[in-house]
Nucleic acid binder design. Structure first.
Lengths: 243, 243
DNA sequence: GTCCGCCGGTCTGTTGACAATCTGACGCAT
DNA sequence: ATGCGTCAGATTGTCAACAGACCGGCGGAC
């Protein structure tokens, strides 16, 4: 991020809104990592504002859960441990089930065709092992579903949860887990939506998220096993790893 | 609320936190109603602070969804129309299902007995038509369930939704609807929890919320019908009511 | 050698003042 | 009478400075 950081986000109206968007962006693209301290003076100088708007932006982000404010100590980028990440997946599973239910109750044929189009595109990308194309389409697919649910509260909470997952320490594991995603799950979701079966659509979407949760767990376990192996080979005399 | 408004909430550490709690309190007890403007100078003078902390508190409450900030116009207490209230109920139904699922997977016998105790207390209060005792117990029952789910994310989102429902214009209708609540639903919830049946517990809790949603809808319909009747008798020559 | 208390620097918490914007009303022209 | 441009008052947006809290290092006592 450069000195024109706020200029690019010029559509916020107030400085506070732009600063808030800028900090959120810094967190999302990894410039600010979990546990980092948000220094008011440093950041306000960088954005070319005073500390007032910056403090207001931090307050909002803290309420949103992206930052943590400790009185007289400052604000820090929140850090999500494995337990919390799994909690988020559980909540997402519940919201996804609702999403499927709502969508199946109100889609029209054109929307179903659009969803099939996205699934087909993902199939083609997957066949070519083209992850650069698979990811954005996958993202669009889920955004489209979220929009089709037509429930603003659901949309806000869901987007918040997605943002929160960016705070997971080993974010790489999330992508590693979703890499092995089965597009077949997506197709089943659309099929149950096409059948206008709210129960089935809800179950499909819930299962989809819970499967992702399990993939994350598996990836964490795999990494842990590998770490232990590495540690044992490089320092074989050590019997116990740090807990 | 008096001039000691912040003194009673003295445990917030920073002024901002106390102001935030105070404003939230004002919204919850109805002193600030939906659509009301939050004047920075007026409120800051009332709390004995400057505008800085007050603005930060409003930022946080806006992010939480209790206030709405319009650039260069100020912040206003958010107003929930019927459509939005129903949306909230839908989301709550999903979260409650998750809650039931999680609880049934991890309760112990003592906790089940405690839940039965609360249901019994509600039965006794209902038998005596003692709503003053029924309400707090009902609240405690649901808070207890929320705690038993042991999922902080779920707890935060759920409490947020409950707060948001206070912004519904005709809040009275909510209570009117829950007055006819069947404690039998509560007992069924506990029974399925006691049976350690996650599916059944989830369904029971989801149904409980959706039933409340239907009761709200019915109350709104009843009120609307009565309004039309009154309007027709008092001004019978008018054929069309204002939309 | 270790622990305790002091102290300077740094950062946050808060404030009051200045600049920009909006609201509502007044007066004028049509 | 109605509509429009203008203006004063009020309110929000932003800033720079002051006060207080926390952190780390230093020196002395045991």
């Amino acid at each position: 991020m450069n000195d024109d950081a706020l200029g690019r986000l010029g559509d916020g109206g107030s400085l506070t809104n732009r600063v808030q968007a800028a900090i959120e962006e810094m967190i999302m693209n990894g410039e600010l990592r979990g546990g980092d301290k948000v220094n008011e003076i440093t950041l306000s100088e960088r954005f070319g504002t005073s500390r007032g708007p910056l403090r207001e932006a931090c307050r909002a982000l803290a309420q949103e859960g992206l930052l943590v404010a400790i009185p007289n100590r400052g604000v820090f980028v929140r850090e999500l441990d494995l337990r919390e990440a799994l909690e988020v997946y559980d909540v997402r599973s519940a919201l996804d089930e609702l999403m499927g239910r709502l969508i199946a109750e109100r889609v029209d044929d054109a929307q179903v065709r659009e969803l099939y189009g996205l699934v087909d595109a993902m199939d083609r990308a997957a066949a070519e092992r083209d992850l650069e194309r698979y990811y954005p389409t996958n993202l669009e697919f889920h955004n489209r579903l979220l929009a089709l649910a037509n429930n603003r509260r659901l949309q806000r909470l869901y987007k918040g949860l997605v943002k929160e997952l960016h705070l997971f320490r080993r974010k790489g594991l999330l992508q590693l887990g979703s890499m092995r995603i089965s597009n077949e799950e997506h197709r089943q979701i659309v099929q149950s939506i096409e059948a206008r079966d709210p129960i089935a659509a809800g179950v499909c979407m819930k299962s989809h998220v819970l499967a992702a949760k399990q993939r994350l767990l598996a990836a964490v376990e795999a990494e842990r096993a590998q770490e232990i192996t590495l540690a044992q080979t490089s320092a074989p005399r050590r019997r116990r790893q740090g807990t």
